[in-house]
Design a protein around this nucleic acid. Structure first.
Length: 297
DNA sequence: CGGTTTTGACCAGCGC
DNA sequence: GCGCTGGTCAAAACCG
């Protein structure tokens, strides 16, 4: 996995491109591409990007971007390279405003605001300490077709904020992992251009296991279902329950050590009148993305 | 009662 | 410098 050309040094593009060899995604025909593009996932022509995914950030410790292990560095608007590992599957997910460059805990005044209460007008007593710049941890963003905003990913999250998004009727929610030693955060917002799409952005990596095996998928009338799950397990077991009125299937997949980028499990099997095609992607060392298509007969 | 969500305010960064 | 925006805080409300 130590790809010599793991980074496109010329890429000032904030769009994260998927690894060069797309065969491991099983995207080998135009039909697949059509399906993906239908969801706004455009797989660019092969471009060498990340290969090693074993950098494994630790809890609360911002990871240094290592050019040999990192994907495309994302350039901020100011032109500086940020410590971001955005996996934007060709989408506007890679917003890299650097407004979060401040220390986590010292960021806020002690008693900043109490909902509904008028602020103590004099800011004298609530001066925020200006600590060292917060180093942004690696981020990973992707989109999911879902009616549910907050998709279950096996971890427990605590919502700590919600903001209205400019030019969007949908708010953005901010979550933090409930594990006290874990500093992973995620943002969830619904696409303003496609309200059926949820944009989820993770920042950081969990240093603990999931609390349960849960993954939720959305289904569309077109019989294309997809979703995601994020696990820290080397061994990933996914339960997929497919119900579409006529048929109810309950299948179990088990992938072994798919944490190594480049390994893709593609299984095709028939069940009753359905053909299920399952693809497991491993984009980061702890993240799996599932895409599976249902088709008649 | 403890954990989670809601929500208004605060702050930093950025563009103009 | 000012205004806008994103991100976060934290008290209050809510919930099981």
């Amino acid at each position: 996995m130590d790809d010599d050309n793991s980074i496109d040094p010329l890429s000032g593009d904030s769009t994260w491109t998927l690894p060069g060899d797309y065969s491991f995604f099983g995207i080998t025909d135009t039909r697949d591409n059509n399906i993906l593009s239908e969801f706004g996932w455009n797989f660019h022509p092969p471009a060498p990007v990340l290969d090693r995914m074993d950098s494994g950030g630790s809890c609360g410790v911002p990871e240094e971007i290592n050019p040999t292990t990192s994907p495309v560095p994302v350039h901020s608007q100011a032109g500086s390279v940020e410590n971001v590992r955005d996996v934007s599957i060709s989408n506007p997910l890679v917003s890299t405003s650097s407004s979060e460059d401040r220390p986590e805990s010292s960021a806020a005044s002690g008693d900043a605001a109490s909902g509904g209460q008028p602020p103590s007008s004099d800011t004298g007593g609530k001066v925020k300490k200006k600590g060292p710049k917060r180093i942004r941890q690696q981020r990973f963003a992707f989109m999911t077709k879902s009616e549910i905003d907050h998709l279950e990913d096996g971890y427990r999250w605590r919502k700590y904020g919600q903001k209205a998004v400019k030019n969007s009727p949908f708010p953005r929610s901010y979550y933090r992992c409930t594990n006290s030693k874990c500093t992973v955060k995620k943002r969830v917002e619904r696409s303003s251009t496609d309200p059926t799409t949820v944009i989820t952005t993770y920042e950081g990596q969990h240093c603990h296991h999931t609390v349960g095996i849960i993954s939720r998928f959305s289904f569309r009338s077109s019989r294309v279902a997809w979703g995601y799950c994020a696990y820290n397990y080397a061994q990933l077991t996914i339960y997929i329950k497919v119900t579409d009125g006529r048929l109810g299937l309950h299948s179990k997949l088990s992938t072994k050590d798919s944490s190594i980028l480049g390994i893709t499990k593609v299984r095709t099997f028939d069940g009753d009148a359905l053909t299920k095609k399952v693809k497991v992607f491993s984009l980061l060392n702890c993240l799996f993305i599932l895409f599976f298509q249902l088709s008649d007969h």
